[in-house]
Design a protein around this nucleic acid. Structure first.
Length: 470
DNA sequence: ATGTGC
């Protein structure tokens, strides 16, 4: 018995789509029509392609026909040749990969304007430190994997000397009331209004995340997340709280929406990629139209994740402030991975900030440095060029892998010693040397924010160093 | 970033 094998090129010539049907057609011919000549087989396949419905119930050819009846994948959406306007702050400090990514983003059909912050570096889709305004559409990876990743600073009434002279109780409470690590959960759960939200009932995908969210409330996760005690210095006499300029004990935290947000990000970006196929080099920028059910659902889920991240910070701060018997004097907090409905040139747009601090006129924010470098309390200037945004930190100088291979434990220890910083947990990938100089970054954005105070870390807790290399 | 896979 001879066994006929159909050439893929022939299938293309007669108009077969490059889909699973290719493989199926080849297999069916080889298995059932091995005695045919190539001409006969091609004639048969041509007839099936011309009218697949007529063959749908055929015992043998039905397999091919049914695959042909599957609706074709939507055509790839082309990027525009001409970008919309975009600005770059601190261009000389920004790696090429980040600029290339923004260049794709400002060519999306829904793009309105873009901006790159001075701490920008390459990410997935939109770069970290990237800002993009879109027309009635939301890009899940324009928000990022950690939806609602944010900062929270509490300025307290504790005497500064208590932290500088004896940090024992600060360290002890940090160990008791913070929890780090991927998947970390508290054994004893706390009630919180965010867990009562109707989205947990109304959105099917979100419903399944409730248990994880309830267990992880008030935890910090891993990576660059931290909770730290330090000294805040208020420098602006005209500050919003009428605090006397000077030094205060303060608590600073950095974390996001934990597993819940990560699952939401993953689910809706997958959905976006199916609905909105973009060219390969821009595929992670897939967006959801806000007038669609999927877009609406993501918007609600994203906002829930943002509020959940906020609740996590508030619980951490409440527990630590209570444990120290302190009173809250001032608080500054902001998301830096999120999307907002804002006005731009008289029109409502969706502003994505992925690793960028909102900096509308008079809006307060906190931009952290590193575990040994100061962070800054800032007041936005409402600069339209940056879409009313600023950097979200110093930005990475080295990738995690590069930091782990080029920074030593001795160097890190020496830096901590020099700055009088106690580090609990943490890995070399988060060492100060892995980050850009925060002063340089701040100098590149004087048009975007004014500094009204700073924060110097003293006792820092992070997740233990990353998992062992494979 | 997340606890588990182009």
């Amino acid at each position: 018995m001879s066994s006929l094998k159909i050439n893929g090129k022939k299938l293309l010539e007669i108009g077969y789509p490059q889909s699973p049907v290719f493989r199926i057609a080849m297999d069916v011919i080889e298995k059932h029509y091995g005695h045919y000549t190539e001409e006969e087989a091609i004639a048969l396949l041509t007839k099936v392609l011309a009218d697949p419905a007529a063959y749908a119930d055929d015992a043998i050819l039905g397999e091919i026909a049914q695959e042909l009846l599957v609706p074709a994948a939507p055509a790839v959406i082309a990027l525009r040749e001409t970008p919309v306007p975009y600005s770059v702050y601190g261009e000389s400090y920004i790696e090429e990969g980040a600029v290339k990514q923004l260049n794709n983003a400002v060519r999306l059909p829904v793009a309105v304007a873009g901006s790159l912050m001075p701490d920008a570096h390459q990410g997935y889709g939109l770069p970290i430190g990237g800002v993009l305004a879109a027309d009635n559409a939301v890009i899940p990876y324009g928000v990022g994997v950690d939806i609602g990743c944010r900062m929270c600073l509490s300025v307290l009434d504790l005497p500064v000397q208590t932290l500088l002279m004896n940090e024992t109780s600060y360290t002890k409470q940090l160990m008791t009331f913070t929890k780090f690590g991927a998947g970390a959960e508290w054994k004893k759960r706390e009630a919180d209004p965010v867990l009562e939200r109707s989205e947990f009932k109304e959105i099917k995908f979100v419903r399944n995340l409730f248990d994880k969210a309830a267990g992880q409330l008030g935890t910090s996760g891993s990576g660059n997340h931290f909770v730290e005690w330090g000294i805040a210095t208020i420098t602006d006499p005209q500050n919003e709280w009428q605090l006397a300029p000077g030094e205060y004990v303060a608590l600073l935290s950095h974390s996001g929406s934990r597993g819940m947000g990560a699952q939401i990000a993953g689910h809706y970006t997958q959905l976006a990629k199916e609905i909105c196929p973009l060219p390969e080099h821009a595929k992670h920028l897939a967006y959801l139209d806000l007038d669609t059910e999927e877009g609406q659902e993501y918007w609600l889920a994203m906002n829930l994740a943002g509020d959940y991240a906020s609740a996590c910070h508030h619980l951490i701060h409440k527990r630590l402030i209570n444990a120290m018997g302190a009173t809250l004097l001032a608080r500054v907090e902001n998301h830096h991975n999120f999307a907002w409905k804002e006005m731009y040139q008289g029109k409502e747009v969706i502003v994505h900030r992925k690793g960028a601090t909102p900096a509308g006129k008079g809006v307060l924010g906190i931009i952290p440095g590193s575990m040994t470098a100061p962070g800054f309390i800032v007041r936005g200037k409402g600069e339209e060029g940056s879409l009313q945004s600023a950097s979200h930190g110093a930005g990475r100088l080295m990738s995690r892998t590069k930091a782990k291979s080029s920074i030593t434990n001795e160097v890190l220890k020496q830096q901590l010693l020099e700055h009088g910083v106690t580090l609990i947990g943490g890995g070399l990938d988060e060492a100060p040397g892995a980050y850009k100089n925060i002063d340089t970054v701040m100098a590149a954005q004087t048009a975007l924010v004014e500094v009204i105070g700073q924060f110097v870390p003293k006792v820092v807790r992070m997740a233990d160093g990353g998992p062992p290399e494979d």
